[in-house]
């Protein structure tokens, strides 16, 4: 394996990767964000600009990750895209048409699973299909196919509380995909999972995405996760939330965990790190030192 190359540039793409991006950008735009601004008024009457003049678009079947420091407005943005919140100004366009309010064409997977506890796994997946007016039998057979796809057909009659976190999130993904959304919005979907389950879920998600005609917008604050999953990474900056850079990930597909140590992976990761963790400027301020320990061997 190549040693990490300090000079390797995240912008340098292998010919195959460059070609992929070229093809991707020729695809139709699925979601377009124009001049999106969201201002909150706090209880004390102050105005907080959570997002300012955001512009970007995603192409059909693209996997886009959204990363940024805590509080930069990632959740705010995804809620605007889902139609769960209204922008102060600007527009969200789906397939070229302006959208308002939530609908099944923009599916969402939340960090907190949000499965319906009173419905079995199968009925959770059937929910969206029934809401679209599908009859019970069609909905059931379609839902079963989706459960097969996420590998949970065995658990179709279980209730959500009987599943592990990873399984719940797979059900949530199946449920969101069942209605055939144009775009799947995911807000830190694996944030509550342990490292191992998380890695497994990333694997699953890539597999599912490869087989389904869906664009994914995925929020994370994990650099490895973003680099591993994304075609492009949208890096936001905080206060106010603005697009800092859109990174084209030069890591070739299909992805595998083995690529974590490749130079292009590390270069990308390093770049995001620079963007969201700018070097801390020393203020010269020192904390007052109060010794609160009685261990005197000064190993620390």
């Amino acid at each position: 394996m190549n040693p990490p190359d300090a000079n390797s540039d995240y912008r340098r793409q292998a010919p195959a990767v460059a070609e992929r991006f070229q093809k991707l950008k020729q695809r139709p735009v699925v979601l377009e964000v124009r001049d999106l601004t969201r201002t909150f008024v706090t209880a004390t009457g102050e105005e907080v600009v959570a997002l300012r003049s955001l512009n970007f678009s995603t192409y059909r079947r693209e996997f886009m990750c959204l990363i940024g420091p805590s509080g930069c407005g990632k959740s705010t943005l995804i809620r605007l895209l889902a139609g769960l919140d209204e922008p102060t100004s600007g527009q969200v366009l789906l397939d070229g048409a302006s959208v308002q309010g939530p609908c099944a064409a923009r599916g969402m997977v939340f960090q907190g699973y949000t499965l319906f506890p009173w419905r079995t796994v199968l009925k959770n997946v059937m929910f969206g299909l029934l809401m679209q007016g599908r009859n019970h039998d069609t909905a059931k057979s379609e839902a079963l196919q989706w459960l097969d796809l996420v590998g949970l057909a065995k658990f179709k009659d279980a209730y959500p509380h009987q599943l592990s976190g990873g399984m719940k999130q797979r059900v949530a993904i199946a449920r969101a995909l069942a209605t055939n959304p144009r775009i799947l919005l995911m807000d830190e979907p694996f944030g509550a999972l342990d490292a191992q389950t998380r890695a497994q879920m990333q694997e699953y998600l890539l597999q599912i995405w490869r087989n389904v005609d869906v664009t994914i917008l995925f929020i994370t604050h994990d650099l490895d996760e973003a680099t591993y999953l994304a075609d492009r990474i949208l890096v936001l900056k905080a206060h106010p939330g603005e697009v800092q850079e859109i990174i084209e990930v030069p890591v070739p597909r299909p992805r595998s965990q083995a690529q974590f140590a490749t130079p292009e992976f590390l270069a990308t990761r390093r770049r995001i790190d620079e963007l969201i963790h700018p070097p801390v400027k020393s203020t010269g301020e020192k904390l007052p030192i109060v010794r609160l320990t009685v261990v005197g061997d000064d190993v620390e």
Binding site: A82, G83, L84, P102, A104, G107, M108, T114, F127, A176
Partner: peptide, 15 residues
Amino acid sequence: HDPALIEAAQTLGAG
């Protein structure tokens, strides 16, 4: 009631 469940249902097309 849990507003998150309402939002989930809305994004699944529930009017």
